[in-house]
Amino acid sequence: MTFREAIRKALSDEMSIDPNVVLIGEDVGVYGGCFKVTGDLYKEHPNQVIDTPVSEEGFTGMAVGAAMMGMRPVIEIMYADFFTLIFDPIVNHAAKTHFMSGGQFCCPITVRLPEGSGTGHGAQHTQSPEALFQNSAGLKMVAPSCPSDAYHLLRAAIRDNNPVLFFEHKMLYDMEGDIKDEALPLGKAKILKKGRDITIVSYSRAVQTALETARLLEEKGIFATIVDLCTLKPLDRTTILEEVRNTGRVAIIQDPNGVGGIGAQVCSEICSDPKTFDSLKSPVIQIGGKCTPVPFSKELEKSTIPNARDCAERITSTIKG
């Protein structure tokens, strides 16, 4: 099953068991979703799939109000870049609902955000905005890297009583994989591979780069542990710190630019934990995308995100000195 189908299945399964789960967004009905994620869901669940006008702020705020009454809306923001329009309902309202009501209300809304570059859509359709949300208290954020995690994490996000931002990297939609029985809960990172020399922390599409980097390193006799964050907020500090201590070295690989990003937060956790900091044999290696708007031209677009060859070289030179 593809990543795209896994998301569709998660939506379908949750809508089947809970009539309060509704999918709201632009062209999510007959059109099947801008990235064909929702497909024929409108046929199976005609009353739970709701096409909206182009009113991101309005329908997101509406979904926040409905969630406060106990519905579990899932909204699709056609391109994650349009997050600018939902900042108010999500950051100022959804995220603060439980807190500001003294616990009277919660806001179980899920926001699906197709993100990332590689599609040639230019700088306003290729961003990965998780960094801009991570500092808002009250939100949870998830970014799966494979179909099975996408399936289980989306179901967990819908069931969670807090607002969850669900980042879907557009370049993963065609990725194939089986859905495992074992469900990954929110808040847990995954260890994809164990190695003795370095720990690579990554998430979302960049996990592909991390895996390829590990393969290249093995050719040189360097063995890496790979930690896939899966949940970006709250971070699974325990797993990250433990795996860094196990190898004494860490490289963080992410596609979005590194300024104030998820990688920077991971680095901060590592460096501010005395035991983990003491275990480091070399400085934390931070590898992120370039801090430029994403260019259109195919080759230039590709050059803004890290590639495995460069990652492997940086890691090798750090280890071999």
Binding site: Q48, E57, G61, A66
Partner: peptide
């Protein structure tokens, strides 16, 4: 910003009163 929230309560109310059938077949 309270206005879309109230609209969301109305969305839920319509959902409750009308039942699933007949509400959202906006497609």
């Amino acid at each position: 910003s309270g206005v879309p929230l109230a609209t969301g309560i109305a969305f839920w109310n319509r959902f409750q009163s009308v039942g699933n059938a007949g509400f959202a077949a906006s497609t």
